[in-house]
């Protein structure tokens, strides 16, 4: 019987894959920012689930690192969104030049 921590760890692995898929294949930049966030939270989930496998409850050290990571991810997302909007304002496009048909 599969336990919960393993289930969440494997879900995290699939999330990283899903995010990577979107990050490579989608062309609109905002979607790529979104996909990047999915990669990030999948990574956190793998990390947190790995720390929750024991019988002693969730390990506080990964938890603290993940909280730090979540906050930094938001800051990076704000910067990325700012860049996407500035790019769209300058070029009128939401995609990179090499991705335009």
């Amino acid at each position: 019987m599969i336990d919960s921590a393993t289930l969440y760890g494997l879900t995290g692995a699939v999330l990283v894959g899903l995010g990577l898929f979107g990050f490579i294949s989608r062309r609109d930049l905002l979607r790529r920012v979104l996909a990047f966030n999915v990669i990030g939270s999948g990574t956190f989930l793998i990390f947190g689930a790995a720390g929750a496998r024991g019988t002693e409850g969730a390990d506080p050290v990964p938890q603290a690192l993940i909280i730090t990571g979540i906050v930094v991810a938001l800051a990076a997302t704000a910067l990325a969104v700012g860049l996407v909007i500035a790019h769209a304002r300058a070029t009128g496009r939401g995609t990179l030049p090499e991705d335009d048909p």
Binding site: G9, A13, G17, L18, I24, A50, G54, E56
Partner: peptide, 28 residues
């Protein structure tokens, strides 16, 4: 290509997770 890369990544990560040594957490 993206689907292939993503599937490969998921497989590696999932396999690594299952192969992790038993947890020696820092709880104590």
């Amino acid at each position: 290509t993206a689907g292939l890369a993503a599937t490969g990544m998921t497989a590696v990560l999932g396999w690594s997770f299952l192969e992790l040594p038993p947890p020696q957490g820092l709880q104590e």
